[in-house]
Nucleic acid binder design. Structure first.
Length: 427
RNA sequence: GUGAGCUUAGCUCAGUUGGUUAGAGUGCCAGGUUGUGGCCCUGGAGGUCGUGGGUUCGAUUCCCAUAGCUCACCCCA
């Protein structure tokens, strides 16, 4: 069998790595401004964490987890998302006794076993943020504003924000009864999936895409219209907070979110043209999760953003990310003495932060020049026996083709300064 | 889990109505007389035509199976 990357995984190659590094850096910089610190959590956790944290009735837990027994007979699972692991770490490391709220972000891979298609992979990348300890709508607004500013910084203009409230345990119970009452007489006309959902998670019926079911969903009671006073006030606070910052949103009363732990605020950022995988980012409040995972009763809110989908959206909206700066100087050599000298020179230059290379293939001068050209070096220096004897090298500007002699003693210092000045000017 | 399309060189693709050594462009390597890139020219390396089986004198081509890729459903990032 030919060895190749497993289904649903892919290499991020040197030719595209700058796009990934760019969005990661922008995200990290922004989180830093907002006072969020990076957390790095394990790629795998005990399976039980996700069963409890993500929810037994979710598709993720029921059919999408990469679960296996390790050699000690423990069942472990590759993380299908980041929140559960962060919450586990919050509890395990006693973060509730640090100044609250705890504000964290992460840049991770996640794993779900499902059929691949556009914008969906088995190994995929997420940027995420979690804020624990704050219950009011202000933190909801802050979390959403991170994303809003992030998209703005990246130059994404057609990315819409949808928000909803799915209530708390107190108001969800009577609502679910109401919902079931509504759907009960319709059960034999609803699809098989919905019949399944009816007992396990009736909320998800509202999300059904089946045309036959959609007709009835239109008239179904919505959680948004059946919130308790506290939830209603919270949602009003969220809306007012977003308006205060000038953040546009739409209320989408059908957002449910596929994970069990969400309470009250749920939201997503969607692409206008992204097609079936148009959700770039999803998030919400999870006030019961920490307690459910064995910690104290602490409220939380967060989001996860799909990096693959973000990069797709940048393409769709025509946002290009510039290639990193070209390398500075290539030292072309003729003869062993020149090779030795060049090795010493590039070593010194690199020590000063200058991007320098020399021949490692024993190639002809012409081939070396071709290499320098293809790799887009700004300058080359040619060194041969003549130059060493004269203590001079030929410095060539690869853009203009101009050449001049330079003293080999001073050239390292001169280049160093030149690059420093250029970098300062760029800033 | 279900359905559709695709699979020939590193990449993008031709092609063979079944018949000797399977092609182009691009990329890579080397040359185009003394020590200089880009344009141009020449040459070279590189393919068990996804894999396994069947039909046939003969299969890269036809048939079947299988894997992978791509897309869609479900669901999600």
């Amino acid at each position: 069998m030919k060895i190749q990357a497993p289904k649903g995984t892919r290499d991020i190659l040197p030719s595209e790595i700058h796009r990934w590094q760019y969005v990661s850096n922008v995200f990290a910089g922004l989180c830093d401004c907002f006072g969020y610190k990076e957390i790095r959590i394990p790629v795998f956790e005990h399976t039980e964490l996700f069963q409890r944290g993500v929810g037994d009735t979710t598709d993720i837990v029921q059919k999408e987890m990469y679960t296996f027994d390790d050699k000690g007979g423990r069942s472990v699972t590759l993380r299908p998302e980041g929140t559960a692991g962060v919450v586990r770490s919050y509890i395990e490391n006693g973060m509730y006794s640090l100044p609250q709220p705890i504000k964290l972000y992460y840049d991770i891979t996640a794993y779900r076993y499902e059929n691949v298609q556009k914008g969906r992979y088995r190994e995929f990348h997420q940027f995420g943020v979690e804020a624990l300890g704050a219950a009011g709508p202000e933190i909801d607004v802050e979390i959403i504003s991170i994303l809003y500013m992030f998209f703005e910084k990246l130059g994404l203009k057609q990315t819409g924000l949808n928000i909803n409230s799915i209530g708390c345990p107190a108001c969800r119970k009577p609502y679910l009864e109401k919902l079931k009452e509504y759907f009960r007489p319709l059960l034999n006309t609803l699809c098989a999936d919905c019949n399944n959902r009816f007992e396990k998670n009736p909320l998800r019926i509202i999300d059904c895409k089946n045309e036959g079911c959609k007709r009835f969903i239109e008239g179904a009671p919505l959680q948004l219209d059946n919130l308790c006073d506290e939830c209603r006030i919270h949602f009003a606070g969220l809306k007012a907070g977003l308006e205060n910052l000038g953040i546009n949103y739409k209320i989408d009363s059908k957002i449910v979110r596929g994970l069990d732990y969400y309470t009250r605020t749920v939201f997503e950022f969607v692409s206008e043209k992204g097609g079936s995988q148009g959700t770039i980012c999803g998030g919400g409040r999870y006030d019961g999760l920490v307690e459910m995972c064995g910690g104290p009763s602490v409220p939380g809110i967060g989001f996860a953003l799909g990096v693959e989908r973000l990069l797709m959206e940048l393409d769709i909206q025509g946002v290009t990310i510039e290639e990193p700066q070209a390398p500075d100087i290539y030292i072309a050599t003729l003869g062993q003495k020149a090779v030795d000298l060049a090795m010493d020179m590039v070593y010194k230059l690199r020590g000063c932060g200058v991007k320098a290379e020399t021949d490692l293939m024993g190639r002809s001068l012409k081939a070396q020049m071709k290499y320098a050209d293809k790799k887009r070096f700004s300058y080359t220096i040619v060194i041969g026996d003549d130059e060493i004897e004269a203590g001079k090298g030929v410095l060539k500007d690869m853009r203009t083709g101009d050449q001049k002699d330079v003293s080999l003693d001073s050239v390292v210092d001169r280049l160093k300064n030149q690059v420093k000045e250029r970098d300062a000017a760029a800033r």
